[in-house]
């Protein structure tokens, strides 16, 4: 087996992983807002009642 590798500083990879991290935060916040906005409407559409039907 190859020897263990110590991670070295690589700006391009940091940018790549940082982009994925940023996307995750944006999606968490964005979908959270979307859920509050269209959630009740979707519930009425699918169930025929509001979210309190749970």
């Amino acid at each position: 087996m190859a020897g263990l590798e110590i991670p070295s500083w690589d700006p391009e990879t940091v940018l790549l992983i940082g982009t994925i991290l940023l996307e995750a935060f944006v999606l968490y916040v964005g979908y959270g807002g979307l859920e509050r906005l269209v959630g009740p409407y979707l519930m009425r559409l699918l169930v025929g009642g509001d979210a309190s039907a749970r």
């Binding site: 991670p7 690589d10 990879t13 940091v14 790549l16 992983i17 994925i20 991290l21």
Partner: peptide, 13 residues
Amino acid sequence: GLGSYLYGQDGGV
């Protein structure tokens, strides 16, 4: 995150 970084360094991501 670390695994992705190591793979990303070698063009794996």
